[in-house]
């Protein structure tokens, strides 16, 4: 059991290290296609972190949206614009300062959070026991998360589905309305 916990801790540290390396590479690399690929990798790494935190549904959404759809959308955008990012014309210190201050504020915010996974955390003692108790009688399915999403918060989920559908239609209209493909473009692509 101890080897287990240490193993998970090492895996967490490794995932975070790769995440930081990928983030630095996203900032440094100027080839936008490589950046789109790196963003997909970043998303897969964060999905791995969510898995080690036992958040299966979040991990799966991250992998589907971040690594799958976002990569495709970024490539679709890339088809309409240039492939190389211009070198920054302004100093990097102000954005760096903003990032550091925001990060410090976020870390400060985690200081008084309850310990991870403890049984007497507010989230475990508020309404969660109620749902766990009532789901088998009222809904009758074993997966409580699905019961909450599809039944207790059914209208909320329906609204989310509408939003996603509207976004999808908008993106399809934008991508379908423009057709930048010319014959010489295809020839260029084949040379690469």
């Amino acid at each position: 059991m101890t080897a287990n916990v240490i193993g998970i801790a090492i895996i967490d540290i490794l995932l975070f290290t790769f995440l930081v390396i990928t983030a630095i590479a996203i900032v440094r690399v100027r080839n936008l296609f490589a950046v789109a690929m790196l963003a997909g990798v970043f998303s897969l790494l964060s999905a791995g972190l969510f898995v080690t935190l036992d958040a299966m549904d979040v991990a799966f959404t991250e992998a589907a949206v971040g690594a799958g759809i976002s990569t495709v959308l970024m490539l679709g955008t890339l088809a309409l614009t240039v492939r190389e990012e211009k070198p920054p014309s302004h100093s990097v210190f102000l954005p760096l300062l903003v990032c550091l201050v925001t990060g410090a504020a976020l870390i400060y915010g985690t200081l008084d959070m309850p310990p991870f996974g403890a049984a007497d955390n507010p989230i475990q003692t508020h309404v969660a026991p109620e749902y766990l108790q009532r789901t088998p009688e009222e809904i009758g399915i074993p997966n409580v998360v699905a019961a909450v999403l599809a039944s207790y918060r059914g209208f909320d989920t329906m609204g989310e589905v509408f939003v996603v559908f509207a976004a999808l239609v908008g993106v399809l209209l934008l991508l379908g309305a423009s057709h930048p493909k010319r014959d010489d473009d295809v020839a260029d692509r084949e040379k690469e």
Binding site: V72, G76, L78, A79, L175, G176, P180, K181, V186, R189
Partner: peptide, 9 residues
């Protein structure tokens, strides 16, 4: 995307 440069058409 590489082959056709676009996802539609």
């Amino acid at each position: 995307f590489f082959r056709y440069r676009t996802f539609g058409r």
